[in-house]
């Protein structure tokens, strides 16, 4: 019966009656859902994990910061924004913030300049290129604690190697612990030692991706190596430089282990006898886990977070401007 009707005149109802290869409506919906939803499902684990270990602590820290919350306190007292008010009047906070910015400038600035130069050197024709590349990355692979202990030794005021060399060269000894600026330099050197090679490799990868034709064209036009570096390499490195600057800003403003290990008093969070090299994170840690003032430490954490946001976006804009 169906054959005859099909042959004579296919009608709307007919099409509906021939379903063998057609998916059922719910399967259809499922497959559409699959296309639409699966991508979200696939990336969901990241957001779930981020939600648990990133976002939740972030928000909860904000919540804690509104309380006078001592470690182990069963009934913390809600005090609104009092912690923030106190923080903005806290001399030690400003001192540690100044230290942090100073160490950050002394480390990130030279670090990126040296990293770019190092990348340019590694980009030249070298024997055993991989060995060199691995070489610059080695400090990054070394244990941070080991580096900290070694550098604290090198910069020892009385028996440190650096001062011995200074004396040999006829220079004055420097009290790397007591002198505020000197201690910042010593810590910045420690940071640079660890991170320069890492940044250099990221920049080197970006350099390798610059098409050779552009250099060849410039070379044919008679551009000097300097000119080629400043007019081709740097501008084309911009996205990578922005990335490196932003990540090193985020890292640089949260420096913790280096100043902690630099302190002559073992295990101390004081950042020197008068907090001369205590960073904000070190102060925050001390407030929370030694002072047990969790609310105040949480407020510090949030303010530091905002400071990092501001400085990172400033750096983003600056880098975009400068490297055209």
């Amino acid at each position: 019966m169906s054959q005859t009707t099909a042959r004579s005149a296919p009608s709307k109802s007919d099409i509906a009656v021939v379903p063998p290869r057609r998916p059922s409506p719910w399967r259809d919906r499922l497959s559409r859902l699959d296309v639409k939803a699966s991508p979200y499902l696939y990336i969901a684990p990241f957001f779930l994990v981020f939600g648990v270990v990133g976002l939740f602590p972030l928000l909860y820290t904000g919540y804690v910061s509104l309380f006078d919350w001592e470690l182990g306190d069963d009934n913390p007292v809600f005090i609104g924004f009092d912690n923030y008010v106190e923080l903005f009047g806290d001399d030690q906070f400003y001192k540690t913030l100044t230290n942090t910015v100073s160490i950050f400038l002394l480390s990130s600035g030279p670090q990126i300049v040296i990293a770019v130069l190092l990348a340019a050197l590694l980009n030249a024709r070298l024997r055993m290129p991989t060995a060199w590349r691995v070489g610059v990355l080695l400090p990054y692979a070394a244990s941070l604690v080991a580096i900290g202990i070694i550098f604290a030794n090198l910069f020892g005021p009385n028996y440190g190697l650096v001062n011995s060399v200074f004396e040999l060269l006829g220079l004055d000894r420097v009290d790397w612990q007591a002198n505020r600026f000197a201690s910042h330099i010593a810590i910045a050197i420690m940071v640079n030692w660890r991170w320069t090679g890492y940044n250099a490799l990221i920049i080197l990868a970006a350099m390798k991706a610059i098409p050779r034709e552009i250099y060849e064209a410039a070379w044919v036009d008679g551009a000097s190596p300097m000119r080629r570096f400043f007019s081709i390499t740097l501008p084309l490195l911009r996205p990578t430089l922005i990335f490196v600057v932003v990540t090193s800003t985020i890292g640089g403003l949260q420096i913790f282990t280096e100043p902690k290990l630099f302190d002559a008093m073992p295990g101390s969070n004081n950042g020197g006898s008068t907090n001369q090299f205590q960073t904000v994170t070190l102060y925050m840690y001390q407030t929370a886990f030694e002072g047990q003032h969790f609310g105040y430490a949480s407020a510090t954490a949030w303010v530091l977070f905002l400071v990092i946001l501001v400085i990172a976006s400033l750096n983003f804009l600056l880098t975009r401007r400068l490297v055209r």
């Binding site: 604290a152 020892g156 009385n158 028996y159 440190g160 002559a264």
Partner: peptide, 12 residues
């Protein structure tokens, strides 16, 4: 002027 238990103290 040596901080107790520091490396410099040990050298001292």
């Amino acid at each position: 002027k040596l901080t107790a238990f520091s490396n410099e103290w040990n050298s001292g």
